[in-house]
Nucleic acid binder design. Structure first.
Lengths: 156, 156
DNA sequence: GTGCAAGTTGAAGTTAACTTTAAGTCAAGT
DNA sequence: ACTTGACTTAAAGTTAACTTCAACTTGCAC
């Protein structure tokens, strides 16, 4: 590694789109690494940019930092994902997105079935009781955020 | 109103699925109301259940309490939504859901275009740069949460 | 009239993912 | 050397939507 190639935190921030404070935070959380100068300032290797691209992509898909840490730690040998790693992981993300889309579509269908029917007066509304919606594909089969799973009994 | 019909916070909690602490919180936030007994305990009218059904449904669609407060305050005369109110509002929710679904589908399509192409090595990745995905339908046309809109320049 | 589950309050705690602040140090151009 | 922008740290602040806590009071069945 040519030492000329090391990047300051400001440079990495500008090129990655993450704020310097976010980069420091990610380092504290052990998602990225840096070396230090004699004067204790961070210097990043170029590879950190690809790693940050991965992190940004994962965040956009909806993963939390904890999950991202897990994904990164599952990488066989290196620590920055290769193309092969990326293929494997991206298929998992695809399934995750599919599930989220399915859940939203189910919610929309439930909403459609409510529109014009005075649904909120019903004891078992599909929008107030989305577990009925999810149950279309069997219990646990459909992704739904936890908050979509609470029931509500209306009127009587 | 038959006073026999008034519900305690525990009863409302059980029938609405909201925790008593959430009901108190909603009251402090002026989303619901209650009367008080001589001893200062809450007593709810039956209508609160429908109002809470509305709140739960809105939360499930993804509205924040601030937005829900706005929706509720827009109601013409009464404070608990009628069937007519519900029709009007649910069409807005439907559009919101459509937008969210569109955004996720766009993200999935972007992911598909990345799989198997070593996308993360590209300077402009559609998953790291979702504003490109959104731009398919013109700027601002597609719903995307703010966090999906940050750029990332990788390698060079 | 007693016991106790259920209710009351305000304040502080929770979680995630950062940002902001304060107080100070480093790097580099001139 | 000097200046100044960029950097350092730990700790506290932010936001949403509640929950938990501590200390105390009510309601009601027996």
């Amino acid at each position: 590694m040519d030492p000329e190639d090391l990047l300051t935190v400001g440079e990495v921030a500008e090129r990655s789109g993450f704020a310097p404070s976010a980069l420091r935070y990610y380092e504290k959380e052990r998602l990225v690494r840096s070396r230090r100068t004699g004067g204790n300032q961070r210097r990043y290797e170029r590879g950190v940019l690809r790693r940050l691209a991965f992190i940004r992509a994962a965040r956009n898909i909806g993963l939390g930092l904890e999950e991202i840490r897990a994904e990164l730690s599952k990488l066989p040998n290196g620590r920055t994902p290769t193309v092969a790693d990326w293929n494997k992981i991206s298929h998992g993300w695809r399934r995750r997105l599919d599930g989220q889309i399915e859940a939203l579509v189910a919610l929309r269908d439930g909403l459609d079935s409510c529109i014009g029917c005075g649904c909120l007066t019903l004891a078992r509304c599909r929008i107030s009781n989305p577990q009925d919606v999810a149950a279309v594909d069997g219990p646990g089969a459909v992704y739904l955020p936890e908050e979509l799973r609470e029931p509500l009994e209306v009127d009587r």
